[in-house]
Computed example of a mutant assay.
Amino acid sequence: MTRAIFYTATTLDGYLATEDDSLDWLFATPGGEGGDEGFQRFLDGIGVLVQGSSTYEWVVAHEDLVAHPEKWPAYYGERPTFVFSTRALPGVPGADVRVVAGEVRAHWEQIAQAAGTRDVWIVGGGDLAGQFADAGLLDEVRVSVAPATLGAGKPLLPRVLGSDRLRLVSVAQAGQFAELTYTVDAAAPSDG
């Protein structure tokens, strides 16, 4: 069964990005560029990526992917990428980017079908991962905690998820990062 996994990095004080959506803090942290064996094993099990528009726009701008689409596979391979947005976004030539709008549950069947026998990686942001949690679709949270603080920014997961829903299943060290993995128990989707 296809699982939805929110795999991300956060600062020690719980932020994914700066207030203006920058991830420069992550790439300034030794090991923050990813690519280690554990990450590659994770990526091998992923069939689809899901992103919010801010994450997608930052990656596209940071790597100048419209002008250099050949860089896309280095980040995401040939996997389909669903981007949740309420506005038009630039495409990356040759990449399978599908911009969708609305509730995550309305798109889950299409996302899961595109993943095939593999899992779904919720790349970011935290609010999108929270929407998956609200819909009872988030199965796992993997967080790499970086030795950095921002003081303010975009929070890791702007939702209330108590210990009745989160269960720590592993702790590891990857260079300067502490890696925490939690399973998420589904809750009844909210009516709100």
Rank of each mutant, 00 (worst) to 15 (best):
V97A: 06
S85T: 10
L137N: 01
A135C: 06
F6I: 02
H68F: 02
E37C: 10
A4V: 14
A187H: 09
P147N: 02
P30E: 01
L157D: 09
V92R: 04
D164K: 06
H68D: 11
E109S: 15
W58P: 07
V66N: 05
V99T: 12
R87E: 14
K154Y: 13
F42Y: 09
G153T: 04
G45E: 13
I111V: 15
A114P: 13
G126A: 01
A115V: 10
S54E: 15
A114C: 11
E78M: 09
W72S: 04
L12W: 04
S190E: 11
V50F: 12
D44Q: 15
S170I: 04
T10K: 02
Y15N: 02
F42V: 04
D127A: 14
L26C: 00
W108C: 06
G162T: 13
P147H: 04
T81N: 14
G151W: 09
Y7N: 10
A9W: 00
L166G: 02
L156G: 10
G102V: 04
W25D: 01
E140P: 03
V83C: 02
V104K: 10
I5A: 00
Q40T: 14
A17T: 01
A174I: 11
V66F: 03
E140D: 07
R98S: 03
L138S: 00
V123Y: 14
L16K: 00
G192Q: 02
R159F: 09
F42D: 04
V169R: 12
P189V: 08
G77A: 03
V141Q: 05
D139H: 12
G94T: 06
E179R: 13
S170C: 07
Y15L: 02
T86K: 15
A178Y: 10
